[in-house]
Nucleic acid binder design. Structure first.
Length: 538
RNA sequence: GGCCCCGUCGUCUAGCCCGGUCUAGGACACCAGGUUUUCAUCCUGGUAACACGGGUUCAAAUCCCGUCGGGGUCACCA
């Protein structure tokens, strides 16, 4: 039964990429709307002009689309309640502010930030909890107010909270009551003439006729403010559902700074003196924890070859996770369908998602489990599906492959890696030796020592014999190579592993590659022999 | 610190609302074997939890209270 009255929204502020926590919020709102045949709105909360960027908006839209979370109303698709950028809805906020002012529920406050800070400090030294005292502002006469305005004194507008306890009927947590004494008159219009988050949020939810607000639990203490405004405006409150938070596996908050932390630790441990493309001052600031710039973290990670923790949806995309897997895993963080069911897709959520089964306790993000889900999902892909997805991944993150390989060869490479890939990025990284010139293969010293030089160069001796065997092969393809190598192994009384490893190190530089006959076939006879000859000189 | 929310294996959770079927189920991780041409898979088995203390009851993971622990929030950020 379609309940067309349900309207949900996802309202990110465009200050960076789409965070996984935000993605889950979007997912739940999307799923709830779908489940009830309602509408899902995307709204950009860019009231903070200093931090919001168009670039970020673009990225967030792109990530949502990549995930498959399509919105019925919002940027780029329009809708009856537009515009969908708060920066373009100023007239509405003004209008509702006037309405509140007219009924005495909004008033000017001329207190400066310094005065407020001082009052807070005083309360602290006196050991009492600070609470904004509205008396002075409320007692200002019309004449006094006019005079202050005429004098150009800056002011904010505050909302007059009711002198009563406020109960929020949360669909996940149940009734939550906050005592009147805990609530204070908060700012709804800043001195720069723009609305604060609280006000814009409420006016928009009201004018967009949002019926259900599904958001993270960190907003719980904002909700009394929000419902009080709905009440003052005489507008029916939407239903609220606050969901548990998502943390790192160590219990810390998942934040962009995690990337800086990991990169900084690596830079210090390896005594990195500079990072490419980063000027010295900025780099030093980064090391001194004065800056957590993501660009610097990425540059450091690049030279030191360390993997930064994934935080944003885009990070997981770059790491080669499938959108369906991210969605599935995220849904499990805070929701469960019961019946020991764990693998499901968007379609399932659109049919089965409900608020009753949202959990109340915070969850930790477990990358190992995400990886396991991804491994399984990739294992189920057909060769064609894998090829298509990997090709897209390469186009976005490793275009060098598309320059070096035509689709026919790329398809063969894809098939060599498909059964041994847990992410779309693993083959991209592990297969680098396929796309570099023969003379540029990087030899891993440990692999060379262990496989080629150990025991008086037994591996090298083996390689010399193999070079002769391979040179004699005219029919250069997987099955033929396999047959030839196996025959040689028989004659030499060796196991396949004894011959494969020296060859693998010689042609790839490492101990890891697809099955050796496939690797050699893909590389071609010339490259194979050239690399073996080079390895012989190591 | 005030206020608010939460508390089942290492992690995510099922079970809790409607006490008995729970000697607490699943998944991931971990451990031990096995398959394998490296890697990645794959197969088999195993370890592992109701935070603690009271109470209610014939019976409590399930209901009540307290303690402890974790988290959120206290901006002219959102």
């Amino acid at each position: 039964m379609a309940d067309s009255t349900v309207v949900t929204r996802f309202a990110p502020s465009p200050t960076g990429y789409l965070h996984v926590g935000g993605a889950r919020t979007a997912l739940f709102n999307w799923a709830y709307a779908r489940r009830h045949g309602g509408r899902f709105i995307l709204r950009i909360e860019d009231t903070d002009a200093a931090r919001s960027t168009d670039e970020s908006t673009k990225k967030i839209l792109e990530d949502l689309r990549w995930l498959g979370l399509n919105w019925d109303e919002g940027p780029e698709v329009g809708g009856p309640s537009g515009p969908y950028f708060q920066s373009q809805r100023g007239h509405l906020y003004k209008q509702y502010l006037e309405q509140l002012a007219a009924i005495g529920r909004a008033y000017r406050c001329f207190k400066t930030a310094e005065e407020l800070t001082a009052a807070k400090a005083k309360a602290k030294t006196e050991g009492r909890a600070y609470k904004y005292d509205p008396a002075e502002s409320l007692n200002l006469s019309k004449a006094q107010t006019d005079q202050l305005i005429a004098a150009g004194k800056p002011f904010v507008w505050r909302f007059r909270m009711p002198d009563a306890d406020v109960t929020v009927n949360d669909l996940v947590l149940g009734d939550v009551t906050i005592k009147a004494a805990e609530l204070e008159d908060f700012v709804i219009f800043k001195s720069d003439g723009g609305p604060t988050f609280h006000f814009a949020n409420v006016v928009d939810d009201a004018t967009m006729k949002v019926t259900h607000v599904l958001r993270a639990q960190e907003h719980l203490m904002n909700t009394p403010k929000h419902v009080a405004m709905f009440d003052a405006l005489g507008i029916k409150r939407p239903s609220y559902a606050h969901m548990p938070l998502i943390f790192n596996s160590d219990g810390s908050k998942m934040s962009k700074r995690d990337k800086a932390k990991v990169a900084r630790a690596a830079a210090k441990e390896r005594k990195l003196a500079a990072a490419p493309g980063v000027d010295d001052a900025a780099f030093r600031a980064f090391l001194d924890k004065k800056s957590d710039a993501v660009e610097i973290a990425l540059a450091v990670a690049g030279v030191l070859n360390v993997i930064l923790p994934e935080i944003d949806v885009h990070d997981f995309r770059r790491s080669g996770y499938l959108p369906s897997v991210i969605l599935n895993y995220l849904a499990l963080l805070g929701w469960s369908p019961g019946n020991d069911l764990e693998r499901f897709d968007l379609d399932f959520l659109a049919k089965n998602f409900d608020l009753e089964r949202i959990g109340k306790s915070n969850a930790r993000f477990d990358r190992a489990k995400l990886l396991a889900f991804n491994t399984e999902a990739i294992g189920k892909l057909t060769p064609d599906e894998f090829f298509k997805l990997w090709r897209e991944h390469l186009a976005a993150f490793h275009p060098v492959y598309l320059q070096k390989f035509d689709d026919a060869r790329l398809r063969i490479l894809a098939e060599a890696y498909r059964p041994r890939s847990r992410t779309l990025d693993e083959p991209s990284i592990n297969g680098m030796f396929f796309v570099v010139a023969d003379g540029d293969v990087q030899y891993d010293p440990k692999a060379v020592e262990k496989v080629l030089k150990k025991e008086n160069g037994a591996g090298l001796a083996m390689l010399r014999e193999l070079a002769a065997v391979l040179t004699a092969i005219s029919d250069w393809n997987g099955p033929a190579l396999h047959a030839a190598l196996e025959a040689f192994a028989q004659r030499a009384g060796k196991g396949m592993g004894d011959i494969a490893q020296p060859l693998r190190v010689a042609v790839s530089g490492s101990t890891v590659s697809p099955p050796i006959q496939d690797t050699l076939a893909l590389l071609g006879k010339n490259s194979t022999l050239a690399r073996i000859n080079r390895a012989l000189t190591l």
